[in-house]
Design a protein around this nucleic acid. Sequence first.
DNA 1: AGCCCTTCAATTGTCGACACTTTTAAAATA
DNA 2: TATTTTAAAAGTGTCGACAATTGAAGGGCT
Lengths: 226, 226
Amino acid sequence: MLASQLLLRPSVTASDRLLLAIQEAIVEGEIPAGSKISEPELARRFAVSRAPLREALARLERCHLIERIPNAGARVVTLTPEKLISLYQLREELEGLACRLAAQYMADDEIQELQALLDEHLRTQRVREGESYYQEAGDLDFHYRIILGSKNPYLINILCDELYFLVRMYRVQLGMNGPRVSRAFDEHKAIIHAIANRDGELADLLMRRHIGASRQNIALQLQQTR
Amino acid sequence: MLASQLLLRPSVTASDRLLLAIQEAIVEGEIPAGSKISEPELARRFAVSRAPLREALARLERCHLIERIPNAGARVVTLTPEKLISLYQLREELEGLACRLAAQYMADDEIQELQALLDEHLRTQRVREGESYYQEAGDLDFHYRIILGSKNPYLINILCDELYFLVRMYRVQLGMNGPRVSRAFDEHKAIIHAIANRDGELADLLMRRHIGASRQNIALQLQQTR
DNA sequence: AGCCCTTCAATTGTCGACACTTTTAAAATA
DNA sequence: TATTTTAAAAGTGTCGACAATTGAAGGGCT
């Protein structure tokens, strides 16, 4: 469910719940990309006042899902190929770094868990052929663990809390579940292998290629669509 | 003044002004690192209600200057050597990327302006020997322009709006203005040269070294302090 | 004395109302 | 009819007050 940042929170406020609900609605396209957000309307819909709603909107802006203009209101972001490329450029760099650090700082048992996770995903994947949801959940989980393994708090915050909802939004709304399934698994395996060998440089390189391949895949899809 | 994200805003609200004021107070150490933030107290101090104050606090959390715990309140972040290293690791990666992209996307006149800026800083620096404020302002300005030159909106947002206040806070409070002045100028010149030659790879490498040198400088200073 | 429970004050989260701004729509003029 | 002006409607920003939660002080127990 990707609620990593909420699992640690002792008490959940209304604005926390709102954030999750609206995030999901935007990512899934229920609130369409580019549409205007009306505070009174959303407040009615979720049966809360505008105070916690505005708190939630502030946090939605933080993860780039909406854009606000003072005195004019908020809009859901519009998705463009250019922005998507920008996003993947960043991911290549940041997740490459995450791999290098993870190879250095992850505990042995964390690496073993990661390996076990991949095996399980492989089995699940075989059973549910074609169901992209599990594939995506597995993929995100894989990336999450490595990012957390970097132990760099700023890096973790940027990737997990700010950029990954955008990544999901693009995947869902542009239908990026592609035919890269089995190849992605092999790439994941190679990356884990490098981390297990404490070869940060190699893990870095492999992750950059892994994400770079996705980026080119996207570029191709976009080109074909035209 | 580093108010880049505010210059474009049509109308300035109370929470905008609050954000700037509190940011400055935290960066300069007037509100001490690690101290608890009392909403009623701050609201009185700035003569506003808690609504715009809370909006400002949400944005301060976004740039990592405060940490909030639901129902418990907000604290100014504490500075640690480990976090500072984490921050510089990120900067190396992100500003390296920024250089590579800037070499590709900056317009010719933007590069010329950048060059002129550096010359001017050099002159100003000679006049005001030892005054670290101008040196820092110049340094930040230099980095800003290259980041903006990358034309990658997510990269720009993360570096300029989220991480640079933290960088300033560390510089001010740990007194990081060091003896690297003249050497930094040479490094800046080399980076611009690479960008002007549209050599992204080289600019990337040089920027990583430039920031890496600062990082090692910091590590040394911290070691000596003990 | 030390620890746990209760009570109370202080702080945070939420609410409804008001002030100001922007946008929309109608009216007036050319 | 097209354009500008004006007025109303909707929406955002801010305020003060109430409700819910937390942290601390005090009292009771072992």
